[in-house]
Design a protein around this nucleic acid. Structure first.
Lengths: 137, 137
DNA sequence: CCTTGACCCTGTAGCGGCTACAGGGTCCAT
DNA sequence: ATGGACCCTGTAGCCGCTACAGGGTCAAGG
């Protein structure tokens, strides 16, 4: 069963919820391999490309940076290697997300504090402005 | 008491924990007014500049975008206006931070799920890879 | 007086991860 | 043969800085 479908770049983009320009961008930076071309110089993708692009997009959606994704793809391309390093990257990513959440939570508390200072009136009397102006800086 | 000190750009930068280039950048984009210069063409700042830069940096630290900060500064410069619009910007900022926290929390859960799939072995068997490849995309 | 070194100046280019053109070519249906 | 959807390359822009290159200024020390 030689039923491998072909995709043009727009098909691939739709199938992965990606902008066409982004697909070309991934190719340019070497994340996505250069596909063969039609006679009219159109890129022609197969299932493998679709698979790989899905992987990239899903990892991006989880916040992985492109250089980390590059590493992940490198590992995926050597399936006999141990999986530990992939696990490690995933855990590092979790730690990063945790740190961001902690940051934003602190921020939110500060913002709430600042916003609660306002009791109406003019800008001159506004304690928000004071809160933003003062401080340790 | 004519005791207004002057600051050179490096002093200002140190006093607000800002890079010198960033101070110049804020001037270039019109956030910080152009200060007078010395004979040798050095920027010479006063307390007002210090105050304003502190405001900018503090707002940035709370995650406000520069264009919002521009608006905030515009309001601060009209102290007789009502304070409500400032309050509104602060609350909008809170909402944005809340949304980011919610996003990241969802992300964290997904990442935990993905990372927990790994039980050692080779990349070929790694469920993390599967989890990243599969899906609705 | 001269050098050293810390600081300052302008201008431009780079980062990440896209996004948005301009200015063209291809392909298929009508 | 014409229209419109799609594709191509190449370049520039977004944000908020950051990092140079290539020079000028200024005060202290020899």
């Amino acid at each position: 069963m030689d039923m491998h479908k072909d995709y043009r770049i727009g098909d691939l983009a739709r199938a992965t919820d990606t902008a066409v320009e982004t697909v070309r961008y991934y190719e340019r930076i070497g994340l996505l391999p250069e596909p063969p071309r039609t006679e009219g110089n159109y890129r022609l993708y197969g299932e493998a490309h679709l698979h790989r692009l899905r992987f990239i997009r899903r990892a991006r959606a989880l916040g992985f940076h492109l250089d980390v994704i590059r590493d992940l793809l490198g590992m995926v391309d050597r399936p006999d290697q141990p999986c530990a390093s992939i696990d490690q990257l995933a855990r590092a990513q979790m730690a990063e997300v945790d740190a961001k959440i902690a940051d934003l939570t602190r921020l939110r508390a500060e913002l709430a504090h600042v916003a609660n200072q306002c009791h109406g009136g003019t800008v001159r009397e506004c304690r928000i402005v004071e809160a933003l102006s003062g401080g340790e800086g």
